[in-house]
Amino acid sequence: MKTLNEERRARRAAVLVTDLGDGRDRIVREGDHVAGDLGAAIANAFRTGHSRSVEAEGRTFFLNAHLPRPRLVVIGAVHISQALAPMARIAGYPVEIIDPRTAFATPERFPDVALHAEWPEDVLKRQPLDSYTALAAVTHDPKIDDFALKAALDARCFYIGALGSRKTHAKRVERLLALGAGADQIARIHAPIGLDIGAASPAEIAVAVLAQTIHAFRSRGLEAKGAVA
């Protein structure tokens, strides 16, 4: 119980596997290798977050999936973020917004949102990113976005998106390489940001970003098997 709670407090996914025949249980962490049908069922539990009983090796196991709640960190208290914050919250992804520009990051513009009028460097030191966090960088300003993007790559955020044209992104890639990020890491960044739905207004771009975030969350772990579209 103590170990399981430690994992849950640290926002790390864990599946508690209980043999319903003899009552023995063990904790499996994401990435641990478990062979056979039981392993496949555990992998499925990590991906979907659904708990269930399974038959494997002639025994009945109960898999209780403990997944951290996904969240979305937005760098930039801009017009897109004003639409994105309430939409994402409704979809089940609580939002935090970080922007050091105090003219942008005001409670009047962002009622009912966790808002930090500080540099990402300072906020992310206190509340680090993790693999159950999505990061959308939408300031257009390298001074603000770049550090957060590098931190998101290092923390293996399940989704990383950055606003800007292909040209803007090409320059960004060079800067991230200079910061020490690997090319394969950088390839995980979605840029231009958002699913291609022809979004034009800030609110439409917010829909595209949220849809891409949800897609990334629900297809976690599938990239490795080449099963993601």
């Binding site: 119980m1 399981l4 709670n5 407090r9 926002r11 951290p68 609580p94």
Partner: peptide, 22 residues
Amino acid sequence: MDESIYLDEARDPLIIAESWMK
């Protein structure tokens, strides 16, 4: 911050079970 991404320690059954055992 409502809808916290962290555990609701005061109401979480597993956290309560751990503290009872302690």
